[in-house]
Every structure is written in structure tokens, then in C-alpha cells.
Design a protein around this nucleic acid. Structure first.
Length: 462
RNA sequence: GCCUCAGUAGCUCAGCUGGUAGAGCAAGUGGCUGUUAACCACUGGGUCGUUGGUUCGAGUCCAGCCUGGGGCGCCA
């Protein structure tokens, strides 16, 4: 099949060198005919760029009538640089072979399609410019995430996908069972989970954090990067039911140190995108959202402002702007409040810390004031919250009180308590939604377009 | 879950106060020695999301349902 001898278009475009007997394989993106000349644009997925194929003997090419938009072909021939032309280099074939025919009802045309239409043909949309770029970008940024942590001595943890732990309060989790749903075992009026596959009630995980804490208290610095699931019936351009999260967890690390790492992490990704993903960033900047590059560049030069929740509430109360939701100490900050803080008041990314304990999770460390917890939200212009993190409660007695206060089911947390019982240490971590980060860096407005197979309420096609 | 907008040709849309449909692109045919979202000419293509109602008559008005977009909440 010439898999190892064929040349990738990305390499051809990078080198721009003449060569004989070059083999390329890919899909036809465009075809233009004149009487004695046919031009094909070939894309092999390795880059946004198409390779120009110039056929100057169309009468002699077999199957030429079937080499149309979408068809898979193999071309062998001579590479000729043409620096004066827009496409810089072209391939003059000695042989063209039709590998896979493409009927004319192929749903992707050589024009712009709406993202909504392409979502209905999610199996074909990676063949478009935008989704090719988006998927290559996704891969590169995933690599950058690993590189950031691995370079700092963090270990990668695969936290479990099936869990018995009810991490943040039930209701929003998918249940995992092998019960016949038409005939569920009942014992004394209640579902008998003892008869289920795992002998207990189990869920798809909503976070790898609790398990990451296990590893952090053994390996020191760890991170998870894997899928999580939320059964919330959210219907917005920012929510999906299945998404990947990055969750670093560090032993002997307090909230301020946690915040410093979060800031360095974000800056690293922005810098990586600008430096190592120039093809993708230039595409986003041109076709998806102008100023994406300058926005990231500005962000790179700015510093994170740090305020406490209490200070943030004071700022918002003094603001001349009218908010739809009134601000008062004790209520959660709304998206409009978060955006005011970083877009209008500070005009920079902001970290808000020390939230009232009642609006945050049970595992967050109680501050000395007994009213707030050591939590942080990182806010960026246009999006609002992009990272949520905290120092974890490492004191067993305090943790038990919080669990009781929040009404969390204690039975499945015995091992979590053990971590505090045996050699407990202060530790911290945060969570970053991978797809939301991709949205922010690319300017793509809908999360369903940065995830290849998005799962949302009433939709799990493909 | 609440609010709001939309569903007309393969795609993107137009269709005013009700009189059974139109454009651009795509497709097909022909033309053109260099095109690059190629261009020029011609041709074919629609039970107007769905069910019911009002009416002599519904793409157009009314109600329900389905699907999709946006806003809000929940969050990442």
C-alpha cells in the first residue's frame, strides 16, 4: 500500500523541494477543469494545506470522470516547486489511481456549511477545513498538557470511570447497572444494590479528583486527564454530558501555591498554541474569530489579579453597572458578575479565592474565619470561569463535620477518611475543562464543535 | 427545567396584508491550455418539519408534537 514510502502533504509543504517518484494518498477536496488541463486539490489530513495536482494529459487518465470531490486517490509523480504561484508547489502525476470512489451525493460540498448542518454528519465533518484544524489542534493541546506536567515531574493517573463514590451530591450522575430495568431486585421496598454487578450502587465518575488525592498522597505530584460524565440536562453552548478534564493534585501544596501553578499552566498553554500551533491559530484568527491571536498575546503579557470573594462582592456592589442578579455576600457569582470583574473592572484575568463555605464542596479546606473555604475560581475575559480549584481539607475532624453539614453519604468515603488518618498532609488541586479551554483558545463558540462526538441531552449519535 | 427564535430544492436562504413556490451555490450536459470557493451557457430538481384546525382556498393564520439555534440556571 506504500504506507511507509508515501509522502505526507505536511512534509511536502514544509520542505518545498523538487522530487521524482513521489507518492501521495488522500482525498480530493476540489477539482477544476479546462479543456486540456485538470487541477485537483488533494488533502491527506496531515495539514490544512491541500496539494495541487496538475493533470496535463486528462485524455489519458483512466477513471478521471470518477475522480471528483470526496474521492480517495493515490498519485505518483514529480514534485515541482512553483514559488511564484499561490500554492508554492505542485505534483505532476505519472500515475493516478482511484482508491475509493465518491458518489455525487456526498454531503460535503466545496463551499461553507453551517456548523449545525455538519453536526448532523459528524462522521464526515473531520474532512472539512474547520474540523480538520479543530481536531489537529485538540491533539496538539492534549500533548502540551502532558508535556507541561511531565516536565515538572508530575505523574499521569488514570482515575476510574466507574465509581461508587458520590463525589458532589447525587442527581447529576449517570447510574451504572446491569439490572434488567423491567425487573429490578427489591428488598424491603428498596432497590437491592447488593444484587447488582458490583454489589453496590455505582456511577460514571463526575471527577477524578478524589482518586487523584490518593495518588498525590503517595506520589506527590499527579494529574488526571480523562473523561467525566454529568447527567445534568443543561442545554447551552458550553455544556456536554461527556467531557475530558485535567485535574492536577499536589501534596504539600497550599491554595496560593495551587493558584500559582494554575496561572503558569494557563500561560503555558496559550504560549504553546501561539508558538507550536501557528497553522491552527492563523486559521481560527481568519475564519472563526478575528483577534483570537492578539487576545492570547495580550493575555500572555498580563498578570492574574487576585481578590478574595469578599473583596469581589464589594467591588460588584460599588459597580455602576446594573446586574440582572443582585450581588450579596453568600450568593454564588453569576457569569455576568465574573465577566464584569475581568472585562471591565480589572481588564485582565482574575483569580477569586476564599468563597463562603455553603456554596462550595464538602472537601474544601475550612479557613480560620470558619465562614469561608480555601477555594479559587480562575476567570478569563469572554468566558468567565475556566478553572475551579481548592486546597483540600486535610484535618479529619473538620472534614467529618463538613461531610455531615453537606449531607454527603459517608459510607463510601471511608477510604477518603483514611487518607486523613494516616500521614495526612495539606494538599491542593484544580480542574480545567479541556473542551472549554479549546473553545477559548480557538474562538469556536459551541462546545459541540470542539468535541468530535459530543453527547448532550437527547443526542448521542455516532 | 424556564424563556425565545427557526424548520421551504442536496446546501444557504427569499417568499409583503392567505390565491398550491424562487435565487445563489451544488448536481447533469456543453464550452474554455493554469485554475485555485475557477469562469460562461443550458438542463433537471420541492407532497414547504409533523398532526390537526380555521377558510372557497394555507408555505403564509391558530393549536399540539418533533428537531435545531440562542438566552438563563447548574457547572468544567
Amino acid at each position: 500500500m506504500d504506507y511507509f514510502t508515501r509522502k505526507r502533504v505536511a512534509a511536502i509543504m514544509a520542505e518545498l523541494q523538487p522530487a521524482e517518484d513521489v507518492i501521495v494518498m488522500g482525498w480530493v477536496r476540489n477539482r477544476r477543469d479546462s479543456k486540456n488541463l485538470v487541477f485537483l486539490s488533494l488533502n491527506d489530513g496531515s495539514t490544512l494545506n491541500n496539494l495541487q495536482i496538475v493533470i496535463d494529459n486528462p485524455g489519458e487518465v483512466a477513471d478521471l470522470e470518477n475522480i471528483r470531490l470526496g474521492a480517495a486517490i493515490r498519485v505518483a509523480g514529480r514534485l515541482i516547486p512553483v514559488p511564484e504561484r499561490e500554492h508554492k508547489i505542485e505534483l505532476h502525476p505519472g500515475e493516478i489511481r482511484l482508491v475509493g470512489e465518491c458518489p455525487k451525493e456526498y454531503p460535503i460540498q466545496k463551499k461553507r456549511h453551517s456548523f449545525e448542518y455538519l453536526r448532523d454528519i459528524a462522521h464526515l465533518r473531520p474532512r472539512t477545513n474547520t474540523f480538520g484544524v479543530a481536531n489537529r489542534f485538540r491533539s496538539k493541546i492534549a500533548y502540551a498538557i502532558h508535556k507541561f506536567y511531565q516536565d515538572r515531574g508530575f505523574f499521569y493517573v488514570h482515575s476510574p470511570i466507574i465509581t461508587a463514590t458520590d463525589a458532589e451530591g447525587a442527581g447529576e450522575q449517570f447510574w451504572v447497572t446491569t439490572f434488567d430495568l423491567d425487573n429490578i431486585p427489591i428488598n424491603e421496598g428498596k432497590v437491592d444494590y447488593d444484587k447488582d454487578f458490583f454489589g453496590a450502587q455505582t456511577f460514571l465518575t463526575v471527577s477524578g479528583q478524589l482518586e487523584a488525592e490518593i495518588m498525590a498522597l503517595a506520589l506527590g505530584d499527579v494529574y488526571t486527564f480523562g473523561p467525566t460524565f454529568r447527567a445534568e440536562k443543561s442545554n447551552t453552548p458550553r455544556h456536554v454530558s461527556e467531557f475530558w478534564m485535567i485535574e492536577p493534585e499536589m501534596a504539600f501544596c497550599d491554595l496560593d501555591e495551587n493558584m500559582q501553578l494554575a496561572g503558569e499552566f494557563l500561560m503555558y498553554l496559550f504560549e504553546y498554541a501561539l508558538g507550536e500551533c501557528s497553522e491552527e491559530m492563523e486559521f481560527f484568527n481568519r475564519w472563526i474569530e478575528k483577534n483570537r491571536i492578539s487576545t492570547l498575546e495580550t493575555l500572555l503579557k498580563s498578570k492574574f489579579e487576585i481578590v478574595t470573594y469578599t473583596e469581589a462582592v464589594e467591588i460588584l456592589k460599588k459597580a455602576k453597572k446594573k446586574f440582572e442578579f443582585p450581588v450579596d455576600w453568600g450568593v454564588n457569582l453569576q457569569a455576568e458578575h465574573e465577566r464584569y470583574l475581568c472585562e471591565e473592572h480589572f481588564n485582565s484575568p482574575v483569580m477569586v479565592k476564599d468563597y463562603p463555605k455553603d456554596i462550595k464542596a464538602f472537601y474544601m479546606r475550612l479557613n480560620d474565619d470558619d465562614k469561608t473555604v480555601a477555594a479559587v475560581d480562575v476567570l478569563v475575559p469572554q468566558i468567565g470561569e475556566i478553572i475551579g480549584g481548592s486546597q483540600r481539607e486535610e484535618r479529619l475532624d473538620v472534614l467529618k463535620k463538613q461531610v455531615e453539614l453537606f449531607g454527603v453519604n459517608e459510607e463510601t468515603l471511608w477510604w477518603y477518611y483514611d487518607l486523613r488518618r494516616y500521614g495526612s498532609v495539606p494538599h491542593s488541586g484544580f480542574g480545567l475543562g479541556f473542551a472549554r479551554m479549546l473553545m477559548y483558545m480557538s474562538g469556536m463558540a459551541n462546545i459541540r464543535d470542539v468535541i468530535p462526538w459530543p453527547r448532550t441531552p437527547r443526542s448521542a449519535k455516532f
